[in-house]
């Protein structure tokens, strides 16, 4: 129901941020995620950054996936 793309923050000016997905830059409103910093990955939904992506957790999920699927690194 709610499309959101993982985007990397490239620039911040106050509450306005600029994020990049696959090289495409888009303005993102940071009012729901003021703690976001440049180089963070965030979820972009309808022009707003709604949550920060956690790289460690992503790695952990992939590790668990490999364990379940019994596929080595």
């Amino acid at each position: 129901m709610c499309l959101a793309a993982p985007a990397r923050i490239t620039k911040i000016e106050g509450e306005r941020g600029w994020v990049e997905v696959g090289g495409v830059v888009r303005e993102a409103n940071l009012q729901l995620l003021p703690e976001a910093k440049v180089r963070d990955y965030v979820l972009l939904h309808a022009g707003f950054a709604i949550q920060k992506l956690d790289e460690e957790e992503a790695e952990k999920t992939l590790r668990i996936l490999r364990e379940i699927a019994e596929i080595g690194n």
Partner: peptide
């Protein structure tokens, strides 16, 4: 191409 995919991801 990567950028084309990026636009498609953003705009659905």
């Amino acid at each position: 191409k990567e950028g084309v995919r990026g636009v498609c991801e953003i705009l659905g």
